[in-house]
Design a protein around this nucleic acid. Sequence first.
DNA 1: CTATCTGCAAATCATTTGCAACTGA
DNA 2: TCAGTTGCAAATGATTTGCAGATAG
Lengths: 191, 191
Amino acid sequence: MAALAPARYNGNMVIHTHSELRANLPLEDDGAGLPAIPVSQHPVSKFREFLDLKKLKVTGERMKIIEHVFERHNHFEADQLLQSMRDRGMRVSRPTVYRTLSLLVEAGLLRELRFGRRSAYEHNYGYPSHEHLYCEKCGNVVEFVSEELNRLQDEICQKNGFQAEQRQFIIYGTCSACRQKRQTNRKYDLI
Amino acid sequence: MAALAPARYNGNMVIHTHSELRANLPLEDDGAGLPAIPVSQHPVSKFREFLDLKKLKVTGERMKIIEHVFERHNHFEADQLLQSMRDRGMRVSRPTVYRTLSLLVEAGLLRELRFGRRSAYEHNYGYPSHEHLYCEKCGNVVEFVSEELNRLQDEICQKNGFQAEQRQFIIYGTCSACRQKRQTNRKYDLI
DNA sequence: CTATCTGCAAATCATTTGCAACTGA
DNA sequence: TCAGTTGCAAATGATTTGCAGATAG
């Protein structure tokens, strides 16, 4: 049994909705993600509201970051975000990226994930609550939604007088693609 | 600081509050917990077997560490383990602690947990698989067992062709004790 | 104006590694 | 004997912080 999440998270996402909502989706997905939740405000205006409330400033850097982050639905790490912004010619410093990510989490716009030692982030606004299957071989992530899990959590929290703020349910293991690869390798080994 | 709540039993769910995980606190624990699983071998002999299989050596340091770790059922971090061993006059270096913890995880004797940035460890041999409620206010952890969750995991993995190696289900929030404290404070605020 | 930001360089902090001396099989 | 270990000091790598100059409101 390997240590927790040795593979570096590669930002690839394969999305699958748990069957309570949709029966057997193909494992490969177009990357569009789970169906978006209709929200009344754009994340940017939500963030402006938050900054206002906290008496913080709406700066060019903060706006560049949030716009970049909400362009696509994917998981990313601080460093990947920085790199991807720089690739597009947007100049921001690493500390500012970290500081802004913290604000976005505090504002409820992003959710922080810990697959491994580094923090990963994903949209928390306009995107349904979901869980993750993390492949330790290739670092891919599969998302799934389970109503049953919500129910189970409510039940457990109620019994313990616990007020849940958020949860992290990650199943670590080997994805179907990597299992097949392995199977192939095994055949070669046997020859 | 953290008063231990008594173990509580709720139908199928067995709940137990563990001692606080903060790095600055001693490794004290009440030693209770979920009911132990009967196992045929002592963890130490299991470890010896593992070392043998891997052609690794049974050293004094490794034995000191595993004996210390399996004396009590509690969660601990690498640094706490080191400190607690030193307090008892056992000399081991930090790198050796880290290296041995990795081996114990690899051998299936310990399970690695990540509540925060540091890794925490708990017994995985002779102790049932369980989940955690983590209080963000006081750092206390409540363990619980849910058969339903096992079933749910199997179902999800089967549907995704995913081979689960392990899982981490942590609910973050506020425990009942801290909620009550807060309630009390709130009353004062209102006066 | 001036409280808040930003970027830089340096600090932090858990964890890991290179290496020379040691030790179990 | 000698492959595998240990402890030390130093490296790593993600994240954070102090601070001087920049900027939003």
